[in-house]
Design a protein around this nucleic acid. Structure first.
Length: 277
DNA sequence: GCCACTGTTAGCAT
DNA sequence: CATGCTAACAGTGG
């Protein structure tokens, strides 16, 4: 489930624990995880120091000395975890990074094996399409930029919010919560938006993502931060996974439909369809 | 046991 | 080009 707020929380919990530490070696336990790397693979990391950890969309970038970057995508069930050397690994552990100080190692765990890792030499934004194709960050984009990203788009807003090339970092949970907060029905075509709709959607996007980061993300099943801690935003979900329960605003039962191939929860009264849809 | 469903997105069809 | 559906995988719940 890692979407922007979860990935941001992982980055914040991970950075102070690995920054400045020197990598001893990386053990790749599931080969297909590593989608791309310099010749010789992850051996190139040995002896390099971690300079920092950052996020772009839903991707986590660990910057190392020598211009080396580890780029992770957690997809549905990926986790980055710090673990003591001796602590048992389960069968879902796909990568272990050991540090020369003998302290906690970094593990990548992924039940469904959808996640991937790139080892990139040089600026990853320039060197890999996985990053360069991403749209703007929802917490950085201006209202004007947001309007530009959506104008003349005929697709349904739910699909556009999930499209990482339009805007980066939003997934199914936050798309539904953002649409509820802005009072917009998920099937609404972006081209049918009024100026006011766009403004409300921009505001709600910032508000919901900021609140979710503050609550350290949503834990439905697998998500935990690098220290293994669950998030708390699931207790604030107003429509996601609340089908049939009363809307917190008006009491109407929350409805669920399929939009852009994804389940979409919404309040049929608070999120009325536009005539133009 | 079988079937439907799950937080993502690449790749393909329209 | 824009848009929409499906498969990739493993696990869970009905």
């Amino acid at each position: 489930m890692p979407e922007l707020p979860e990935v941001e929380t992982i980055v914040r919990s991970l950075a102070p624990r690995i920054r400045g530490r020197t990598i001893e070696r990386a053990e790749l336990l599931f080969k297909p995880l590593l989608r791309r790397a310099p010749r010789g693979g992850l051996k190139i990391l040995a002896g390099t120091r971690v300079l920092g950890v950052r996020r772009r969309g839903k991707m986590i970038i660990i910057e190392c000395e020598g211009g080396l970057n580890l780029v992770f995508h957690l997809k549905m069930t990926g986790q980055l975890l710090l673990a003591d050397d001796g602590a048992a690994r389960d069968k879902h552990t796909r990568l272990v990074v050991k540090f020369s100080d003998g302290g906690p190692e970094l593990r990548f765990r992924d039940i469904r094996k959808f996640g991937f890792l790139l080892c990139i030499k040089g600026t990853p934004e320039g060197a890999c399409t996985e990053l360069s194709c991403l749209g703007p960050e929802p917490l950085d984009i201006t209202l004007e930029g947001f309007r530009r990203a959506l104008q003349r788009r005929k697709a349904r807003i739910k699909g556009l919010l999930l499209d990482q090339t339009v805007i980066a970092g939003i997934g199914n949970i936050y798309a539904d919560e953002i649409l509820f907060d802005s009072g917009i029905h998920p099937v609404t075509r972006a081209s049918a938006f009024s100026k006011k709709d766009v403004g409300r959607l921009w505001e709600s996007t910032r508000k919901i993502l900021a609140l979710a980061i503050e609550a350290k993300g949503s834990t439905l099943r697998d998500y935990v931060d690098a220290e293994g801690r669950s998030g708390g935003f699931q207790f604030f979900h107003k429509v996601y996974d609340r089908e049939g329960e009363p809307c917190v605003a008006c009491g109407t039962p929350v409805n669920r439909i399929r939009v852009a191939g994804r389940s979409s929860s919404f309040c049929p009264k608070c999120q009325r369809k536009r005539r133009a849809v």
